[in-house]
């Protein structure tokens, strides 16, 4: 079934070697979300370590990321299939799964110059001294609503960008345009995967 899944981004020309500024489509990697006034307590009861405050993300032992978007909303990057199976209306009062796999495209940007590139399309200060690893900004990127999470990606600073799947090609094209002056280029997701979540590029 998972083989029928497809991302929406035509990545264009892929760089053969990892450039100083790289862009990759992670849209086929696993992710999910939970939301509701009971989400925090249920997720904690499942053994998940949650960031204390909204707009913070932490990475667990398996390299999965738990991003807290508000007091009661969590974005989970990585394989959380176990949680999805454990969930039911009865067992998880006021905690509801979100279809993040399909609602949002997942694009990553990697490179020390990434904050400068992002400053061409986003009005938030993303320099590492003010937006360190684990910081989250939910803001406007090239006039789209987007979630930006700072992380070490490909062994260097970078961002996870999650934004509406239907506009992912548009966002991708904006990023490629913004990267030109820094000689940034798209790469295959494998090129940035190993250091991020320790997962293989298996689909789904």
């Amino acid at each position: 079934m998972a083989a029928l899944r497809k991302g929406f981004i035509d990545t264009g020309k892929i760089a053969p070697v990892l450039p100083a500024l790289a862009l990759a489509d992670f849209s086929l990697k696993s992710r999910t979300g939970f939301k509701g006034s009971g989400a925090a307590s249920w997720l904690a009861a499942q053994g998940l370590v949650l960031p204390d405050d909204p707009n913070q993300a932490c990475t667990d032992a398996q390299g999965r990321m738990v991003a807290r978007l508000s007091w009661g909303e969590f974005l989970l990057l990585g394989d959380f299939a176990g949680l999805e199976k454990a969930w039911s209306y009865e067992s998880a009062p006021m905690c509801f799964p979100l279809p993040r796999q399909d609602s949002h495209a997942w694009i990553v940007v990697s490179g020390e110059v990434a904050p400068k590139m992002m400053a061409k399309i986003c009005g938030i200060d993303l320099r590492p001294q003010v937006f360190p690893k684990g910081a989250i900004a939910q803001t406007s990127v090239a006039r789209l609503n987007a979630i930006i999470i700072a992380d070490q990606i490909g062994g260097r600073g970078g961002f996870h960008l999650l934004s509406d799947g239907s506009t992912s090609q548009y966002l991708w094209d904006c990023l490629v345009d913004a990267m030109l002056e820094f000689e940034g280029a798209p790469v295959r997701s494998e090129a940035l995967s190993k250091e991020t979540h320790g997962q293989t590029d298996a689909q789904g």
Binding site: I121, Q169, Y170
Partner: peptide, 8 residues
Amino acid sequence: FEPVRLSA
């Protein structure tokens, strides 16, 4: 910037 939405 003029966002364009495309269906699957």
